[in-house]
């Protein structure tokens, strides 16, 4: 009989244990694949809504990073020629070096920051039966991924325009970026779930991100860490974002002009991939556990 094939849904009072949640968390890619059309619609809407009604419309995601790069070039090359010669950076390399760091950090910080309120803001959707709420942080992360891709496009154009070499090791960059994506998404899951229960999360997240940004070598050179007390140095060196940004700069060949070019950043890649996978798995599993009570709190 055809009725025998009806899907059966059972809801229990007892929350699933960490074991089954972790098992469920591994299935995140299949959830995303099943709802890819919807996810695509969310991402398009997210990007469109930011520039809706403006004359230049779709150009803005591209113009924004382009102006930012122009600003760095103006300030760091024309006004205060900043030379980080110790790291082997020439004047021409400084703006791309800074810009790459800012774009990477921006992708990470925006994903976490904008995901924080995404569950609460979309309460109407979360109240829908069977709505897969993980799509919400997921769509934010993908939209930020698109914005990052445009920013990186500007970086690549500048890199070539400035006549910098393109090393073969840049082919390893996608691996590093995959780790960054997982790391950002994992924290996005945690922050969005926490915000449902404790609304202080939004402020806490922005303050923590500000601290984190300055503790990451975006605007300063990593060798400066050698001068700080060992405990702080250990923290700074094990910061995954340190390895994301320094690793990416290395892979893009920005340090190759140094007297002693750095080796391939296998350590950084490993650390970023490992921490990304761990944070994503735990973050999503925690999200799955908290999700049962979202509607009660919204």
């Amino acid at each position: 009989m055809e009725t025998a094939s009806l899907p059966i849904r059972t809801v229990r009072a007892e929350p699933p244990g960490w074991g089954s949640r972790l098992a469920q968390a591994v299935a995140l890619p299949s959830v995303a694949a099943r709802h890819r059309a919807l996810l695509g619609a969310f991402v398009r809407r997210d990007i469109q809504s930011r520039f809706q009604g403006s004359i230049l419309g779709r150009l803005w995601p591209l113009l924004h990073p382009a102006f930012l790069f122009g600003l760095y070039y103006l300030v760091f090359v024309s006004i205060i020629p900043m030379r980080f010669e110790a790291a082997g950076l020439t004047g021409n390399q400084t703006p791309p070096w800074l810009f790459l760091g800012v774009v990477l950090w921006g992708a990470f910080a925006a994903t976490v920051q904008r995901s924080t309120a995404v569950i609460v803001d979309n309460g109407n959707l979360v109240k829908m039966a069977a709505f897969p709420s993980e799509l919400l942080p997921l769509s934010v992360s993908l939209a930020e991924g698109v914005v990052f891709a445009l920013g990186f496009g500007i970086y690549a154009a500048a890199h070539l325009a400035l006549g910098l070499a393109v090393p073969a090791k840049v082919l390893l960059l996608p691996v590093l970026l995959a780790g960054l994506y997982a790391f950002s998404l994992g924290l996005a899951f945690l922050a969005s779930a926490a915000y449902v229960f404790v609304r202080d999360t939004a402020n806490l997240v922005s303050v923590l991100l500000l601290f984190w940004m300055f503790l990451t070598p975006i605007f300063w050179l990593s060798y400066l860490i050698d001068g700080v007390p060992p405990t702080l140095a250990a923290i700074l060196r094990n910061n995954p974002m340190f390895h994301v940004i320094e690793g990416a700069r290395n892979l893009c060949g920005l340090y190759d002009a140094a007297p002693l070019p750095p080796p391939l950043p296998w350590g950084s890649i490993g650390l970023v991939l490992g921490s990304g996978a761990l944070v994503l798995l735990l973050g999503y599993a925690a999200f799955l556990g908290a999700r049962r009570r979202f509607v009660d709190e919204i």
């Binding site: 009806l6 899907p7 849904r9 059972t10 809801v11 039966a129 069977a130 009570r293 009660d296």
Partner: peptide, 20 residues
């Protein structure tokens, strides 16, 4: 809300067959 599956019960079990 519980029957729909939007929220979870604190006690007990509910079971629904088919598209809701």
């Amino acid at each position: 809300r519980i029957l729909t599956g939007v929220t979870t019960p604190s006690t007990g079990v509910c079971r629904i067959e088919g598209k809701v």
